[in-house]
Simulated assay, not measured.
Amino acid sequence: MSDGFTRERAKALLEQWTASASLVKHGLSVSCCTEAYGVLEAERLGLSGAPFDAFVDKYAIAGLLHDFDYDRHPSLEEHPYVGVKFLREQGWPEEILHAILAHADYTGAGRDSHLDKALFACDELSGFLTACALVKPSKSIMDVEVAGVRKKMKDKAFARAVLREDITGGAELLGIPVEDHIGNCLRAMQAKAAELGLAGVPI
């Protein structure tokens, strides 16, 4: 993106505001999945070259910044409002700020744009896929399969903090079967396994 509102700057903000290593990884994984939907949508719109790159960057940046204020301001009264206010003062694009507001149910922000829908759809699922990888003996996302993820979703004791209805509801918002949604995010995370710390360990 132009005007200095880049992925690199977004990642730096995430790391600067976030002491929790797992929360930084969450931002990276949500960004990875949301970016994959940016690519699909840019292709559907027939974009190419610089417009394609700028379009996809918005999706990646929204993922990086959606929880960047959470470590410092975890209450419902403050997150994501404090972060959005800071970003607005810095001049970040409004469509990214709206998507960040819309990822939280309690803000009342409508999920209108494709970016809004993609960010919401990827938030809980990326965390669930990470949990699925970490219970594998290899601790590798490469060993996670869609069918296994669907099975784990039915196990209420597994990763119980993850809202299953947000995963299924996110797929509905995007207008695709939940299996396709899982597959899209799984492939995106597998492609960046090392960056996400999910490449695994020797068994």
Rank of each mutant, 00 (worst) to 15 (best):
C32K: 00
C32L: 00
T34R: 11
E35F: 12
E35K: 13
A36K: 09
Y37P: 03
V39K: 14
V39D: 06
L40C: 02
L40S: 06
L40Q: 12
E41R: 14
A42E: 09
A42R: 12
A42V: 09
E43M: 02
L45K: 15
L45M: 11
L45V: 08
G46W: 03
L47M: 14
S48I: 06
G49I: 06
G49W: 04
P51G: 12
F52D: 03
F52L: 11
F55M: 09
F55Q: 05
F55L: 04
F55A: 04
V56N: 02
D57C: 08
Y59A: 05
Y59E: 14
A60C: 04
A60F: 09
I61E: 01
L65W: 11
H66A: 07
D67G: 02
F68G: 11
F68Y: 14
D69C: 02
D69T: 04
D69Q: 01
R72C: 04
R72D: 01
P74Q: 01
S75W: 03
L76W: 05
L76Q: 10
E78H: 05
H79K: 07
P80C: 12
Y81N: 08
Y81R: 12
Y81L: 12
V82P: 02
V82W: 07
G83P: 08
V84K: 12
V84L: 09
F86I: 10
L87A: 13
E89H: 12
Q90R: 10
Q90F: 08
W92I: 10
E95H: 14
E95R: 07
E95N: 15
I96A: 05
I96H: 12
H98N: 10
I100L: 14
A102H: 13
Y106A: 09
Y106R: 15
G108H: 10
A109E: 15
G110Q: 15
R111F: 07
D112V: 11
D112F: 08
D112E: 15
S113I: 07
S113E: 13
S113F: 09
S113V: 14
H114M: 14
H114F: 11
K117T: 13
K117P: 06
K117R: 15
K117I: 10
A121D: 02
C122L: 04
E124G: 08
E124A: 15
S126M: 10
S126W: 00
F128V: 11
L129T: 06
C132H: 08
K136L: 04
K139T: 04
K139A: 02
I141Q: 01
I141S: 03
I141W: 01
D143C: 01
E145V: 14
V146M: 07
V146C: 13
V146G: 03
A147P: 07
G148T: 04
G148Q: 03
G148P: 05
V149G: 02
R150L: 15
R150N: 01
K151H: 11
K154C: 00
D155S: 00
D155L: 04
A157W: 01
A159T: 03
A161V: 07
A161S: 13
V162K: 14
R164S: 00
E165Y: 15
E165V: 05
I167L: 05
T168K: 00
L174W: 06
L174A: 09
L174Q: 07
G175K: 12
